[in-house]
Amino acid sequence: MNQQPVAFWSLKPWWCQPWSIVLTGVVISLGSWLFLHRLWITLPITLAILAWWMLFLVLVPAAYSRQEDS
């Protein structure tokens, strides 16, 4: 019996969906700049968020998809 693969994002709650991850990152980066006006604080925060996005929006779903295919 050939089962339909389960979509990665259907396994996650609403607060862990791509739109909520991106929205939270944008709000944190923009909020850091608007409240602090310090590039030396905002830049590392934004770079950490970009790394987080790469991990959880690109690499993890791709790995899950490869695992489901094998």
Rank of each mutant, 00 (worst) to 15 (best):
T42M: 05
W19S: 14
P44S: 02
Q67N: 07
T46Y: 12
L23C: 10
R66T: 03
A62H: 08
A62D: 03
P44E: 02
L43G: 00
F35H: 06
L34G: 01
G25R: 13
W14C: 02
P44I: 06
L39A: 11
P61H: 08
L50G: 05
Q17F: 06
F35E: 05
L50A: 13
F35Q: 04
S20P: 07
S29E: 03
W52H: 15
P13Y: 08
A7Y: 00
H37D: 11
V27C: 13
W15V: 03
A62S: 08
V26F: 14
P5W: 00
G25V: 11
S32Y: 12
S20Q: 14
A51D: 02
V6S: 01
L57Q: 01
T24L: 15
G25F: 13
W15I: 03
W9T: 06
V6R: 02
P44C: 04
S29I: 03
D69Y: 03
V22K: 07
Q17T: 06
S20T: 15
I45S: 01
W53F: 11
S70I: 08
Q67E: 07
W53D: 01
S29K: 02
V27Q: 10
N2P: 15
W19A: 15
Q17K: 14
Q3A: 11
R38P: 00
W15F: 15
F35Y: 09
W53T: 05
I41P: 00
Q17Y: 05
S20A: 14
L34P: 01
V60L: 12
E68W: 00
G25N: 12
I41E: 00
